[in-house]
């Protein structure tokens, strides 16, 4: 169905979301290219998760469009978008708490098997993913007995089972220790190298600067800066947003 050369790129154009009188997102434009990790940072309440909700179709924007592979998805529901190759993790974990790690990933693999024409055996695919995210030791444990860091990996594994082209990660490293974060960075780079377009929302600035090709900074619902990690670190507007200095 899909060959290696038509990998998706995600594009968000002019998205605005209002909650009553509050403007949560104001004319936000963002692009994620295949093979790249695109960072999205910003203080709490900046609108990062809201943007993910708009991209995945859980929330309808008041204005703006979302496209993947040049296909307008703005009117599509979350299920259709997922089947076009979009996957996400949740900041407030949305794991299937009654199931084990293996079963959580298996649900996702079975869903893909149900609608795609893949010949893969879902059970085998799940075992590969378990090894890849390094949760072999706890594969049979129920997820609500796991620490947060591992839960985030389960959510990632669940996404991978859908074989996404665009992967949205909402604070995947929070709750992980330094070793885990380092391993996670390696995994992220691998995923991008395979051609996936990864969008990373993260508070761990070191991780963001380490793995991202491009970084977008969101503040009060507006994109205030876009650039390479180096450029972002020196951007006065970004410093003002984060440190509260009165730079112009």
């Amino acid at each position: 169905m899909t060959s290696a050369d038509d990998k998706a790129s995600l594009s968000v154009q002019g998205v605005t979301v209002r909650f009553g009188g509050n403007i949560a997102l104001d004319d936000v434009t963002l692009a994620a290219n295949p093979g790249c990790v695109t960072g999205l940072i910003g203080p709490n309440g900046a609108g990062k998760t809201t943007l993910f909700n708009v991209i995945t179709g859980l929330l309808a924007p008041n204005a703006g469009i979302v496209t993947m592979n040049d296909r307008d998805m703005t009117k599509l529901g979350p299920t259709r978008r997922a089947r076009l190759g979009l996957a996400r993790t949740f900041q407030r974990l949305e794991l299937f708490s009654l199931l084990s790690v293996r079963e959580n990933i298996r649900v996702a693999a079975d869903i893909r098997k149900g609608w795609s024409r893949d010949k893969d055996n879902p059970a085998e695919a799940v075992e590969k993913i378990i090894d890849r995210i390094g949760l072999r030791d706890v594969a049979d444990a129920r997820v609500d007995s796991l620490p947060t860091g591992q839960c985030r990996l389960v959510e990632l594994g669940r996404c991978l089972a859908t074989k996404p082209q665009v992967l949205l990660l909402d604070e995947p490293a929070s709750g992980q220790d330094e070793t885990e974060t380092a391993q996670f960075a390696v995994l992220l780079r691998e995923l991008a190298a395979e051609g996936m377009a990864v969008v990373l929302v993260e508070h761990d600035v070191r991780l963001v600067m380490d793995v991202c090709h491009t970084v977008n900074v969101l503040d009060f619902g507006r994109i205030i800066a876009v650039g390479t990690p180096e450029q972002i670190q020196q951007d006065p507007a970004v410093l003002a947003a984060y440190l509260g200095s009165t730079a112009p």
Partner: peptide, 24 residues
């Protein structure tokens, strides 16, 4: 089996199921 896992998953989080491509 497969259906049971899927139903339990749906009970827990419809949002997660939808974003994984499940037709709720």
């Amino acid at each position: 089996g497969r259906l049971g896992r899927r139903l339990l998953a749906m009970k827990d989080s419809e949002a997660a199921c939808a974003t994984l491509g499940l037709n709720l």
